[in-house]
Design a protein around this nucleic acid. Structure first.
Lengths: 222, 222
DNA sequence: AGGTACATCTCGGGT
DNA sequence: ACCCGAGGTGTACCT
């Protein structure tokens, strides 16, 4: 990784056009070709950047970064170089994430009855022509139920499930398909909207679900 | 701005939990309290970060970053410090942007007929009780048309316009208000959803709107 | 403070 | 390659 601190002015032309007047900034160039321009304020986002694959040209006047194919162009005019160092970093093991929506879906797919009494899974990622429903289930009466899974159940989640139901019900065989919104937390306004549309809401506890995967553990743990 | 290159392992606890095994990384600490952890690969996004306001504690073992109010905690355990420098950067003038949605709205407001034959503008940012519609127009028959403008027309944009139309049509005088989605690019599934709801789609060319390119040129070009 | 909409969103997964 | 959905989204702007 190369770190340059320099007084510079910057032009970007691509999906939009931007201009940065002359000031001291950090230029970060990663070994995968990522280029970022950071000022000393403004949070985690660079003011300008370009992601790989890039072509980087350097001259006395500055640095020009281009997309390998495409119109994007980041032009850094350097008037004063204050620091320029490179660091070898080697390989870094990838970030381990825990607790995202994916896990919820896996756990609920393994325990569909959590979403409603007697529910059994027909398939995950049930396709519609506007996108996949998280879970498609049937109950004891063989009625269909589309389940939308979210970490947080918002109005937007209710809208999403409503769209899917609208599509699914066009199939005469599934005209009575119901909807269930399952989430760790369901916002009050989302609950109101769901009720008005006949959609059931289920709040699920991630720790309990994790425990249901290995029921013996909780039963016999000391 | 402080730049630390160090061998470190990192724990994050907040809306989710993450762990980074020990490796050499860049720690960037901005003077506004932003903290970022960058590896030498992976594009523009830090592997971990915390945005202001933050409380930063430093010891011999490493750095702990906390949100001023809240449960979030970023713990950086440093096993080897390879570099640690600070740079004064002063104030940087803000980024100047050109070509975002705002500009598209201005151009279409000046040329509403682009959105439909004979359309004339009644007002921009037409207020509803859930937010403003980008353009409100009338056609030759004096029928109302609500226009939603996007750089990219997605399903989300169709939903947004649908919500507005639902509100607008509650006014008996506007009960027949139609909807038009205008965007530089409209995604296929958004088009399907719009059609199903009787919403028209119009793709607009930014360069033509700017007058930088004449659409008739192709007809009469030598 | 809370909600809504925009972003060069970025990023991953699926078709 | 395109398209869609999620994000520790962040961020500005409005009520």
């Amino acid at each position: 990784m190369r770190l340059i601190v320099a007084r510079c002015a910057i032009d970007y032309r691509g999906r939009l056009s931007t201009f940065l007047p002359e000031a001291v900034r950090l230029l970060m160039i990663k070994s995968d070709g990522s280029v970022m321009v950071h000022s000393d304020r403004g949070g985690y986002r660079p003011e300008n950047w370009m992601v790989p694959p890039t072509v980087i040209e350097e001259t006395d006047e500055g640095i020009v970064v281009r997309k390998h194919r495409g119109e994007e162009r980041l032009e850094i005019l350097i008037s004063e170089r204050l620091s320029d160092v490179s660091h070898e970093m080697g390989e870094a093991a990838p970030l381990v994430k825990d607790g995202v929506e994916r896990e919820l879906q896996e756990l609920l797919a393994a325990a569909p009855a959590t979403c409603g009494d007697g529910f059994r899974l027909v398939r995950r990622e049930w396709p519609t022509d506007i996108g996949p429903v998280d879970l498609m289930c049937r109950d004891r009466e063989d009625d269909w139920i589309a389940v939308e899974i979210k970490r947080t159940g918002t109005i937007e989640a209710v809208e999403q499930l409503t769209r899917y139901l609208e599509r699914i019900r066009r199939d005469p065989a599934m005209g009575s398909c119901r909807g269930v919104l399952a989430a760790q937390e369901i916002r009050p306004q989302a609950r109101v909207l769901a009720q008005g549309r006949g959609i059931d809401c289920v709040e699920v506890d991630l720790d309990v679900l994790r425990g249901e995967r290995e029921p013996e553990l909780t039963l016999f743990a000391a």
